[in-house]
Design a binder for these strands. Structure first.
Ligand code: MN
Ligand code: MN
Ligand code: ZN
Ligand code: ZN
Lengths: 155, 155
DNA sequence: AACTCCTTTCGTAATAATTACTATTTAGGA
DNA sequence: TCCTAAATAGTAATTATTACGAAAGGAGTT
């Protein structure tokens, strides 16, 4: 579980960003971010909608998608997950990367100093200027592997 | 431009894979792969469809998508590009990574031994078994940067 | 060749995810 | 408080992708 304190810190940062950038800090936006910041599972838009609806029953699909785009564009949240599935979101802006299970779509966080320290290859500098990195390790999670064992029988 | 020879090598490999896996090597599949293997731009499904239609006018949308999924599942091609845009495809199976321009969606290839040598963090091994890596550097390409210069004026 | 059986394709319909539209509401400043 | 541009709700539209059913293809058999 993510500490309430940290969630509120992210929300406060967002409210500050709004003030600086002349964007309105609405109830809807705040609750969407609060929901996402309190989750460790990198939920998709639909899941976020369902959860925020518990607190704001009349919130619309449009607002969810529009807000997620807004937050992403301002760098408050990030879009994660592989192309084959629907978009997933992440309010954790600390530098980290993801492990994705190709079976159940579970997404886990990890850090790697080694990875973060790699310089941008010259080849890339010639293509353009790099502003962000996205690293995703793909495989089968523990849970899915065990499930496969039970079904097919052990090795 | 990609040498004809290399394109045909990839096509031949695919035909071999078909034989081994008991999948039919149809004209449609062959032409879709040939088109993709001959392109350096990581085209999307729609683009591939339009191009293959020049040679097989009656080919259907279904066949394009079904075939792309088949090829991806067999590891013959890969799906690339970031979540915000439509899926893009790549028939280059040599280990490499991508630079993506967030402005014009241009996708360029690059290699990085440093990146490929990084061991999987323990943290990740505990989550599951890693079977693939996807690395994407994001930024603004040269062309888009120059365009921005002309519009807004230089620094 | 004609027959059989299974795979694949075409043409089109359906679905799923995301985005757009417009009347109405609201945040935040004067 | 009052005003106004910005944002939202409810719904329609769009886009990308997948599903379906009838027809075609292809390989082995007679
Ligand atoms: Mn994360
Ligand atoms: Mn590539
Ligand atoms: Zn899993
Ligand atoms: Zn560009």
């Amino acid at each position: 579980m993510i500490p309430r304190q940290q969630v509120e810190k992210r929300v406060a940062e967002f409210l500050e960003t709004c003030r600086r950038q002349g964007v309105k800090a609405t109830h809807q936006r705040t609750e969407i971010l609060r929901e996402l910041a309190g989750s460790e599972e990198h939920p998709d838009a639909e899941t976020i909608l369902a959860r925020v609806r518990k607190r704001i029953p009349a919130i619309s699909v449009d607002t969810i998608y529009r807000t997620l785009r807004l937050l992403e564009d301002r760098g408050v949240i990030a879009r994660v997950g592989s192309m084959r599935d629907r978009a997933r979101f992440d309010a954790n802006t600390d530098r980290h990367h993801h492990f994705v299970c190709t079976e159940c779509e579970m997404i886990g966080d990890f850090c790697s100093d080694a990875m973060d320290r790699i310089p941008v290859p010259l080849e890339v500098s010639e293509m353009g200027s790099v502003e962000g990195v996205y690293v995703e390790l793909r495989g089968i999670c523990r849970k899915c592997k065990q499930k496969a064992m039970k079904t097919k029988g052990p090795t």
